[in-house]
Design a protein around this nucleic acid. Structure first.
Length: 762
DNA sequence: AGCACGCCGACT
DNA sequence: GTCGGCGTGCTC
């Protein structure tokens, strides 16, 4: 790959101060490079450029440099002729990747917005593990399933004790019987040996490689779009033609054919010489997405994901930089892809939390997509059946254009949702209501399958009255209070409010307060009592351990030999099961009472998603939601499937309490083994922050113990800043912290971890 | 972040 | 006597 075509000094951004004039003097070769390193030191380092590397060292390129005893890889920010730093060492080598000026600018923005150094941010933009390596591209060609119908069934029987071959056959069938060989070996992870065996048995045939895809031609499998889809596609096409930043919210109910809209828009962009990024939430959903996109874009498409090896990643990077790949599909990190002539970014299931990165830099891919769209004049499509409050509000304020797909395409009716009041209906000593038991019985009787969903959210334990459904809440934050064993208190982990644990319910004075937390094993036992001999498949952290544990269980259930699938969150995602008639939600509360201001939003999103699993073509599914709070607005709007009304209600609450999207949050976690010291430092820091950045609309909350007070032998305290901070103020927040630890001579005994726009609170 | 240096208590 | 715990300071 040739180095970026950047004459020195052409980069539009000015990083870390002014660019000296002499850089533009082209007569002399610059002798020093200013390099950003992946360390949390807010300073750039100067290195000498050896004459033999002078050709390759340009702003944006990756370079290997000595740092103390080790070698690290950094990004060249700019070149200079002179330097007054002492002890300058030479660059060791020039790496094989670089950042384009546009991605340099984006990296700079990520660093300043999320509060890390340029070098740290750059690690997310181009992963460092590339290295020069022989990239073995698997033999090209197209694999075609040679058996179908009865022959396929015969093959299934003949395959005998060869589960991998069977899985390959099923995978092939699922994606329409024809895929590229590289999809099988690289993306699905089947070894060439497995493939060869199946070829030998003549169940799969290999055809020569398709050189370029036939994008100009009509779809092979012609799908007719409905009017709403057509309208959406047309608007997206117009927007990409305008070459201005155009954000859209594609709001389409589950099964309304959003993907088909994405495909058409992407195809249009690519046919016209543009490039496209498609983000999908989780790696577990990637294989299906790959199969679908591969049909349309074949070898003009790249896939990136975290499990790729260095060389694979480099191969994909190179194909994008060289313009060979016009579309990239992947999880959050794909938002930084160096696709040439980028015109469109699609963020599917934009409300999904997995777009938020857990490690530094804790960026949100949706946010990055929008910023990139702004910087590079792109069309950005956020798609969801249950949009995030943030996107919903932006759309409401007309900052995003709303596109709507209100109808399901395959004629599967929306399921019937019943909200069951557990205060009245609970069968003593169990977690079941009478209604759910009756429905289960009917479903079992007719040979249908059911999914039971048991919500479990972390370790937060809230307090609820089983007589009236009352839940202990913070009077300031509208968030459930969390029971802390230390001191036996109920605390709001958001603002720090604390009160003693209660002996009885303040609403109905019954002494039937309970702490939450039932496991799947317990439910399984209950099921055995109610329905002896019924095949129950349990899916939770215990049963899904090991490689592809999820997939194995889901395949088992899909095979039809089990009547009930019982599990936690993981049952809500992945495969579609056509045999499922009934979905039961055992404790809808658990999500709703999670101490997080987004809990109502999440509950609605999650329940909408599980509900989507019930029913099939021509048959309306049934959903039973058990709750002690049937009057909560989440449930009333869920019942009628009215997301707009729900969101309007939800946004009123957010506005009243100044939560996002009406404010921004920065959460900081202070961590130390020394409890006393931690308290002193955090207290002092919060006080200083209140003095320095506290003002109207900027509040400093805490310090307060997070849900997990102690982790790995360290104590933790949280400080939350609510309001809109400038980049300068954000930097100030960390500086104040450093000043305090310095003044108190604590050294590194207190660690600071912070998160801009946190999505979850621990 | 890593890594080395250096100071203290614990063990063969 | 040395091993290794982690507090401290530095990296072009």
């Amino acid at each position: 790959v040739s180095p970026p075509n950047l004459p020195a000094g052409s980069s539009k951004i000015i990083l870390f101060g002014m660019r000296p004039d002499h850089i533009n003097q082209k007569s002399k070769k610059p002798t020093y490079a200013i390099v950003a390193l992946p360390i949390p030191v807010d300073r750039l380092f100067t290195y000498a450029i050896p004459p033999e590397l002078a050709e390759g060292v340009r702003p944006g390129v990756r370079v290997e440099v000595p740092l103390g005893r080790r070698t690290t890889s950094g990004i060249v920010i700019e070149l200079t002729h002179q330097s007054d730093v002492g002890g300058i060492r030479p660059i060791k080598s020039v790496g094989d990747t670089h950042l384009s000026p546009a991605l340099m600018k984006l990296t700079d923005w990520v660093a300043s917005y999320y509060g890390c150094t340029f070098g740290e941010a750059a690690q997310s933009v181009i992963p460092p593990s590339f290295r020069q390596a022989k990239v073995k591209r698997s033999a090209g060609g197209f694999a075609r399933l040679a058996v179908s119908g009865a022959a396929f069934t015969r093959a299934e029987e003949e395959v005998g004790r060869a589960p991998k071959q069977l899985r390959l056959l099923h995978a092939m069938k699922e994606c329409g019987g024809a895929v590229e060989v590289r999809t099988i070996t690289e993306e699905w992870g089947f070894s060439r040996t497995i493939l060869n065996q199946v070829i030998k048995k003549t169940w799969i045939s290999i055809e020569p490689v398709v050189e370029r895809s036939h994008l100009g031609e009509i779809d092979r499998d012609v799908v007719t779009l409905n009017t709403d889809q057509e309208l959406s596609v047309q608007q997206l096409i117009d927007a990409t033609g305008s070459r201005t930043f155009s954000p859209f919210l594609l709001y389409g109910v589950t099964g309304s054919g959003k993907t088909e809209v994405y495909l058409r828009a992407a195809r249009h962009v690519i046919v016209n010489g543009g490039g496209c990024i498609v983000l999908v939430p989780e790696i577990s959903l990637l294989p299906q997405a790959i199969a679908r996109y591969r049909k349309h874009f074949q070898n003009e498409m790249a896939v990136v994901h975290s499990r790729m090896t260095g060389p694979e990643r480099y191969d994909a990077w190179k194909r994008m930089v060289e313009g060979e790949c016009r579309l990239v599909l992947g999880p959050r990190s794909a938002v930084f892809s160096p696709i040439q002539n980028l015109r469109l970014i699609i963020v599917d299931e934009e409300q999904d939390d997995s777009y938020k990165q857990g490690e530094k830099p804790r960026y949100h891919a949706r946010h990055i997509a929008l910023m990139r769209g702004k910087f590079e004049d792109l069309t950005v499509v956020l798609g969801s059946a249950t949009p995030s409050a943030e996107s919903y509000e932006h759309t409401h304020k007309k900052r995003y254009t709303r596109l709507e797909l209100p109808d399901r395409v395959e004629g599967v009716p929306m399921p019937r949702i019943d909200i069951v009041d557990m205060k009245v209906e609970r069968v003593e000593g169990t977690s079941f209501s009478k209604t759910l038991l009756d429905r289960l019985k009917t479903c079992l009787g007719s040979g249908g399958q059911s999914i039971l969903f048991l919500n479990k959210r972390g370790h937060a334990r809230y307090v609820q009255c089983s007589a009236c459904g009352w839940v202990a809440q913070c009077k300031h934050c509208d968030i459930s209070l969390t029971f802390h064993r230390i001191g036996g208190t109920l605390r709001c982990h958001f603002c720090g409010f604390s009160q003693n644990a209660l002996p009885a319910c303040p609403e109905c004075s019954a002494s039937r307060l309970f702490f939450t937390g039932v496991g799947t094993q317990r439910i399984e036992l209950d099921l055995q009592t109610f329905f002896p001999g019924v095949a129950v498949l349990r899916m939770d952290a215990d049963t899904t351990s090991g490689k592809e544990g999820h997939l194995r269980i889901l395949e088992k259930f899909a095979s039809g030999s089990y009547s009930i699938l019982l599990g936690t969150q993981m049952v809500t995602k992945g495969h579609h099961f056509p045999g499922v008639q009934l979905v039961g939600v055992l404790n809808a509360e658990d999500e709703l009472n999670f101490p997080d201001f987004r809990s109502a939003e999440r509950t609605f999103q999650q329940l909408t998603q599980v509900s989507g699993r019930a029913g099939r073509v021509g048959r309306r599914g049934e959903v039973v939601v058990q709750t002690y709070m049937p009057d909560h607005y989440v449930f009333s709007y869920l019942k009628t499937n009215d997301y707009d009304k729900f969101m309007n209600e939800e946004l009123k609450v957010r506005k009243l309490l100044k939560y996002p999207p009406y404010s921004r949050l920065v959460s900081a976690l202070c961590i130390s083994k020394d409890k006393e010291l931690l308290e002193r430092v955090t207290e002092a820091w919060a006080l200083t922050l209140r003095r320095t950045i506290g003002r109207e609309n900027v509040a400093v909350l805490g310090p307060t113990p997070p849900i997990i007070e102690r982790l790995k032998g360290s104590y933790r305290l949280q400080v939350m800043v609510k309001g809109h901070l400038t980049a300068r103020e954000k930097r100030g927040v960390v500086e104040r912290f450093n000043e305090i630890t310095l003044r108190m001579k604590t050294g590194r005994a207190v660690d600071l971890r912070w998160d801009v726009d946190p999505q979850s609170f621990y």
